[in-house]
């Protein structure tokens, strides 16, 4: 069964379509990069899958069932800028929030949950910062806290919204090794990404998106000049300077 199956997904804000009839299925155990120009609907795709924005039509299935019943299988890393980091809480506490979905109503996260959260922090190299107030963390560290929170969700399918934006080199490395570890455990990870330079390096599979699905498949097959032109279209000048054709085309 496919971890993610999206059929004819259309999302519109005020009758202006953001996603048009997107249909795809993701294979299990792959790192998938979602790539496309600004305003292509990349984040909206994740939000629509997670039910955070209403769908105009279409359906989404996680392992063959609706998202509603499969919440516990899904981990989510929102964009770092989507929350107020002045919130009075520390890193460990934020990571513990990843356990809330498992804990259930009226109960507190217990010792086991704290252990899981600490382990998650350790994995992203943030164990020493567990007690640090979140506004005192650097951008990269905040991103790692969000990743640790997703790890604590102990999910099978992960959705990450621009985790590489504005992070330092150390964090970038930490995220990469984490992604590979998740993959090694057979988990499926879908990452919204905007840096074309690193797509081939990071992701097994690539989904090229611009309002509609342009292409989906193994990165070496899909990440071609032709497909990128189709995705970025009018912004080709930018493309030329960013990716030389020799870099994109497979020998």
């Amino acid at each position: 069964m496919n971890p993610i199956q999206v059929s004819n997904l259309t999302v519109a804000y005020d009758r202006k379509p953001v996603l048009q009839e997107v249909t795809f299925q993701m294979p299990e155990g792959k790192l998938i990069g979602v790539v496309g120009p600004n305003g292509a609907g990349k984040s909206t795709l994740i939000k629509a899958i997670l039910g955070l924005v209403p769908k105009a039509s279409g359906s989404v299935e996680i392992y063959g069932k609706s998202y509603r019943t499969q919440r516990k299988l899904v981990g989510y890393v929102p964009q770092r800028g989507s929350v107020d980091w002045d919130f009075p809480t520390n890193a460990l506490d934020v990571v513990l929030m990843g356990r809330y979905g498992h804990v259930g109503w009226f109960r507190r996260p217990g010792k086991k949950d704290t252990a899981i959260a600490m382990q998650a922090l350790d994995k992203v190299g943030m164990k020493e910062y567990a007690d640090r107030q979140i506004s005192q963390l650097s951008g990269g560290q905040q991103q790692r806290v969000f990743l640790a929170r997703a790890l604590a969700q102990d999910a099978t399918v992960y959705f990450m919204d621009e985790p590489f934006v504005g992070v330092d080199a150390a964090t970038e490395k930490a995220i990469i090794s984490l992604l590979n570890e998740l993959k090694a455990q057979g988990k499926t990870v879908l990452v919204v990404h905007h840096d074309l330079q690193t797509v081939k390096e990071y992701f097994d599979w690539t989904l090229l998106l611009n309002k509609q699905k342009i292409a989906l498949g193994p990165t070496e097959e899909v990440f071609t000049v032709e497909n990128l032109q189709k995705t970025y279209g009018g912004r080709l000048a930018f493309l030329d300077s960013q990716v030389s054709p020799s870099y994109v085309v497979q020998p």
Binding site: D14, K16, K211, Q212, G234
Partner: peptide, 20 residues
């Protein structure tokens, strides 16, 4: 219209808010 929304920057001279 769908193509237009994909290349909105390119066709910036056309100003369509919605497909109505």
């Amino acid at each position: 219209f769908e193509i237009y929304t994909m290349y909105e920057m390119k066709f910036a001279s056309l100003q369509f808010a919605t497909n109505d």
